[in-house]
Design a protein around this nucleic acid. Sequence first.
DNA 1: TGGATAATGTTAGCACTGCTTACACCTAAA
DNA 2: TTTAGGTGTAAGCAGTGCTAACATTATCCA
Lengths: 201, 201
Amino acid sequence: MSPSRQPYHHGNLREALLAAAFRLVDSQGPESVSIRALAREAGVSSAAPFRHFADKAVLLDAVAARARAELDRKLDESTPRDADVLTQFRAMTVAYVRFAAEHPRLFDLMQSSGSTSGRFLGDLEDERRLKLIALICEGQNAGLIPEADPELIALTSEALTHGLARMVVDGHPRLASLSSEDARKLALAATQLLQSGIGLS
Amino acid sequence: MSPSRQPYHHGNLREALLAAAFRLVDSQGPESVSIRALAREAGVSSAAPFRHFADKAVLLDAVAARARAELDRKLDESTPRDADVLTQFRAMTVAYVRFAAEHPRLFDLMQSSGSTSGRFLGDLEDERRLKLIALICEGQNAGLIPEADPELIALTSEALTHGLARMVVDGHPRLASLSSEDARKLALAATQLLQSGIGLS
DNA sequence: TGGATAATGTTAGCACTGCTTACACCTAAA
DNA sequence: TTTAGGTGTAAGCAGTGCTAACATTATCCA
C-alpha cells in the first residue's frame, strides 16, 4: 500500500517519451534521438519504450504528427475569419513560414516522415487544401482572381509558401536564421509579388 | 611482383566508397548507408574508410557535393544561351524540378547536409543567384519585368522553384511520384502563373 | 639505388544502438 | 478471487561508428 519510491509502473510512459522526443527533435534534430537515452531519462528500462512504440520510426512518426497538429493550430489561430481570399492566403503563408523559422527541425521531420506513415504531412492538410481551392473559386467569381485552373493556382500558391518555408529551413544564404518578424515581412512581400505578377510576357 | 589476387592497397578506395555511397543514397536514402557495409562491398576492412573520410558526416557531405555538381551540370545543359530572361528562368525551373523528381533522396541530402558543411547546398549556387539577379535587372531595363526590388523578385522566383521541387520530394498528394514529363509541365504552368500574377488586388 | 617517411591498409576492441525473448509484476474485469 | 492482459525488467544478439596499435606498400630524397 505504501507508495514505494519507484513504483513498478511509470504511469504515463508513452506521453513522457513522446514529449521528451518532441523536445529533443525540436532542439537537436531527429538523429540525436535514442530510445535508450529516452528510457534512461524516464527512469525506465531500455526495453520498456517498445511496449508503446513498435519502432523508432513509429515514435518519430508520432512526434511528426504532434508537430503537424501544432502547425495546424497556429494556422487556424492566425487566419482571420471572414476576410477576403487574398488576405487569408497571406495570413496562412506568414504563419507557415514563421513556424518553419521557429521550428526548423520539427518542420523538416514532418516532411521526411511522410513516407513511413504513408500520409503526406509536410504541407497543407487535405481539408485545408480543399478550402483553399474553394476560396480561389470564390475569388474568381468575385473577379479578384484571373480565370485559370483553380487547382493550378492553389498548387502554385502552395509551392511559393512551401518554398519560402523550406528555404528558411534549408539555410538559404540570404534567409539564414530569419527572425519571426523578418519571416513575416518576407512572406508578405513574396505573396504580394505573386499576386501582382512578375513578368509581362 | 606477381600481382596477388588481393593486393594490399585497393587502388582508389576513396572513389569506390564515394560512388557506392552515392548510388545507395540515390536509391535508398542516407539512413541506409553504413560505413562498414561500404567497406565490405569494397572488399576492405571496416576501418579502412576512415583513412579517406574522417567521419560518416564527411562522407555524406561528399555525396551531397557530388549531387550538387550533377544538378549544376543539368542546370547548365538545360539553359538555352542568349534566350530572354523569362525563358531562361523557366528552363531553370524545369530542370530543377525534374532533378528533384528523379533523384528525391539526393536532392534531400543536398539540403540537409548543409549545416554540417557550413555551406548552403540545396538551392541555387551563389554565382547562379547573382546571374539571376542580373538577368532580372536586364529584364527590367527592357521593360519585361515590373519595377520592384530585384532581390525580392529573385527570392520569390527561387521560392516557387524550390517549393515545387520540395513538394514533389516531400510527397505532396497531387504530386506524388511525378514523371519527368509531368514535372516539366507543372514547372512551366506554375512559372507562367507567377509571371502573369494571381490576383488583381 | 637504398632507406626514411608518409600513405594506406589490417586486427581488435570500446561504447553505443535498435530490437527480441523470457520472465515479473500489477491492475482491472469476470 | 482468480485470471488475463497491459506494462515493466534483465539479458543478450547483431549491428553500428570510431579509435589505437600495428603491418604493408609507395614515394621521394640523400
